[in-house]
Design a protein around this nucleic acid. Structure first.
Length: 121
DNA sequence: CTTCTAACA
DNA sequence: TGTTAGCA
């Protein structure tokens, strides 16, 4: 697995950020998790941590729902393309390193907001 | 922030 | 069926 893919699979984004990024409410994010459309990690405080791949997934889910697709159908499609979240050891990262990565993502978020772009990665 | 149940269209 | 309000 390349370094890029590794970073995309790191779960570091809290629901508030993911909500703004995807336009989905935290409630919807929880609902989708119930249907196994996404499998975010959990922080020590039991709060969801999403990866960049999860963002892409969620955006896809949005489109699929607009297309009139069902949760079950979406789950089937997504389970083929993207296997369940794999081993991304957040514990293997030092705190400073994790903070660096998170800050980087925050900067990216700001950039998108300024450009108002929907074509993300 | 999390969980849960009940309710709506 | 997808989503939400209100609670603890």
């Amino acid at each position: 697995m390349g370094e890029k893919e590794l970073r995309k699979n790191m779960s570091i984004l809290p629901v508030s950020t993911v909500s703004k990024l995807t336009g989905l409410t935290p409630r919807q994010l929880r609902y989708y998790e119930r249907f196994e459309l996404v499998y975010p990690k959990r922080s020590a405080g039991n709060q969801r941590l999403y990866s960049l791949n999860d963002i892409e997934r969620l955006l896809e889910i949005k489109d699929y729902l607009d297309s009139g697709m069902t949760m079950q159908e979406i789950r089937r499609v997504l389970s083929k393309t993207n296997a369940p979240q794999i081993s991304n050891d957040p514990d293997s990262l030092s705190d400073t390193e994790a903070r660096k990565i998170f800050h980087k993502e925050m900067l990216r978020v700001g950039r998108w907001e300024n450009h108002g772009s929907n074509n993300l990665w």
